[in-house]
Every structure is written in structure tokens, then in C-alpha cells.
Amino acid sequence: MASDALILSLDPLVVAVVLAMALITFLTKVGGIWLVRRFELSDRLEAGLTVLPGAIVIAVIGPELAAGGPAEWAAGGAVLLVMWRTESILLALCTGVLAVVAFRMAF
């Protein structure tokens, strides 16, 4: 099936669905800020906005780590440790990826 498809072939229906996906995704990306730019925000709402970054980050990694196992938890600990000691995101990232590969082989 895949090998039959020409590399550059563009099915009109597929293109239409892909562009619809693109439009929907763009609307989700801009929707929130469009809303808060349009209305004057009270101090309370702005305070709510300022806790969002940390809250979103926690909401992303919480279930992600909960779904993982000892290898991911140990690698996560390594990331935090390196980040805390060096404050280098690159170093923390490399440590995390190497650690998760190593721990997955070990555990």
C-alpha cells in the first residue's frame, strides 16, 4: 500500500483533511491568548495566568512519570539533580536520555 504511493502524490481528500487539522490546531494554539488579549483581565485572573506555566508543566509530567517505571523515575531524579547542580538544560537533557536508556537496560 505504502510502496504503491508515489512519493509526491497528493490525494485531494488527504490534503483537505490535513489542512483542516492544521486549521483546528492553529485555532487551539491561538484561542487562549486571543481570549485573554480581547478582554481586560482583573488582577485575580492575571494571577491565575501566572501560575499556569508551572501548573501545566506539572500536569504534563505527573501522569507521564506515573505511567513510567523505576527506569523513568530514576532518570527523572537524575535530570532534577543535574538541573539543580548545574542549571544547564542541555546537560540535564543529555543525562536524562542516557540515564533512561541505561536504566531500562539495567532494570
Binding site: V57, I61, G76, L80, E87, A92
Partner: peptide, 10 residues
């Protein structure tokens, strides 16, 4: 992705 976000929590 998890590693980037974890680093960010710090």
C-alpha cells in the same frame, strides 16, 4: 519531553 519539562520545574 519529560526531561525538558522536569528540568523546567526546577
Amino acid at each position: 519531553l519529560t526531561a525538558v519539562f522536569l528540568a523546567l520545574t526546577a
